[in-house]
Amino acid sequence: MAVLTKPSLEQVSLPTPPHRPRSYFSGLPVVDLSVTDSDALLVNACEEFGFFKVTNHGVPKELIARLEEEAIKFFSLSQMEKERYGPANPFGYGSRTIGGNGDVGWLEYLLLEINSESISHSSLDFLKEPRARSFCSALNEYVESMRKLASEVLELMAKGLRIEPRNIFSKVVMDEESDSVLRLNHYPPCPLLQGLNGSMTGLGEHTDPQLISVLRSNNTSGLEISLRDGTWVSVLPDAESFFINVGDSLQVLTNGRFRSVKHRVAANGYESRVSMVYFGGPPSGERLAPLPLLLGEGEQSMYREFTWCEYKRCAYKSRLSDNRLQQFEM
């Protein structure tokens, strides 16, 4: 599979997280979506890790490869041309700077708004150009597949929790007004690390604000997650599968039963990493609070009620590593 070999990012030193894992984590849950009783394993994974891998997901390999190829074509453009499509509100192309609060990383990315069931052309002027027709087609087919996969996983979560209706989580993401986005990331090889057995921060530690994140990457390593005891472990890449993150919003809805996983990405000196992440978010006015169905007798809500719009404003004002949910705790 093709990868980019010529990094275009400014060559500056970025912080390397301490205690870099030296081997891959062997205890990551794997959920086979073709198995009828996979919901119990899925719930256990959400409670223990907030992160798991899904196989037999039904997303065509050809579609995944096509979108990755289109993303590589875009990231292969000259830096000057890519910067014509710089971030605005906050969609579009970005490099190194992550948000407006001082976070940086060794990466470049496209952040694209999803309008109903397709990518909104307002996210990026490049998508309005004739040369981007095949890119748009691949993006929209991929988004449709991600919405279906996210919905299937969320309904399995509800089944495993034994709550009704089964679409209690998925309807929030499938709503026509849902605030979902797609992010394409490129972590180029860092020349400063060549010849060294080291790595550099590609994307700093953080949790995802939405309900669910569906991640696919090429076969380059770099993704790391934090376990409950604070230990960081490296995730073995698998280009054939998808990785699922529990987000902050789902942690709230389950009153902390499901864990919003803290994760980060390391870049390296020789290999290019390309990832595609679908973030399934609620509508702007959706009110978020622990579901009464999941509160046991005498159990108190850990979070006060707030809207997704309130939480998103909080997220935009924070640093990546901040605990954004803290100010909404009871």
Rank of each mutant, 00 (worst) to 15 (best):
V214D: 09
G280V: 01
S217R: 05
R147N: 11
L193Y: 11
I244H: 06
G202L: 08
L149I: 14
N268D: 04
I163K: 14
P188D: 06
R264L: 08
R273E: 00
G280I: 04
R264E: 09
V173E: 08
K159I: 07
P209S: 14
M276I: 15
V277I: 14
V277P: 00
A239Y: 10
F169N: 06
G281Q: 04
S221D: 15
S284N: 12
R162V: 06
S249V: 13
K171Y: 03
S249W: 00
Q194W: 06
T254S: 15
R228K: 13
V181H: 03
N219K: 13
L236P: 01
G204R: 07
N255V: 05
I212F: 05
D179I: 03
H186K: 03
G230M: 11
S217E: 12
V252H: 02
D179P: 00
H186P: 00
L192W: 06
Q210N: 15
N185I: 02
N245R: 02
S217Q: 15
A266T: 06
D248Y: 11
Q194H: 07
G198N: 08
N255Q: 09
G269D: 02
H206Q: 10
E240V: 04
G256D: 10
Y278K: 04
L156Y: 06
S234L: 15
T231H: 12
K262E: 00
A267Q: 03
L227W: 08
Q251Y: 10
S241I: 01
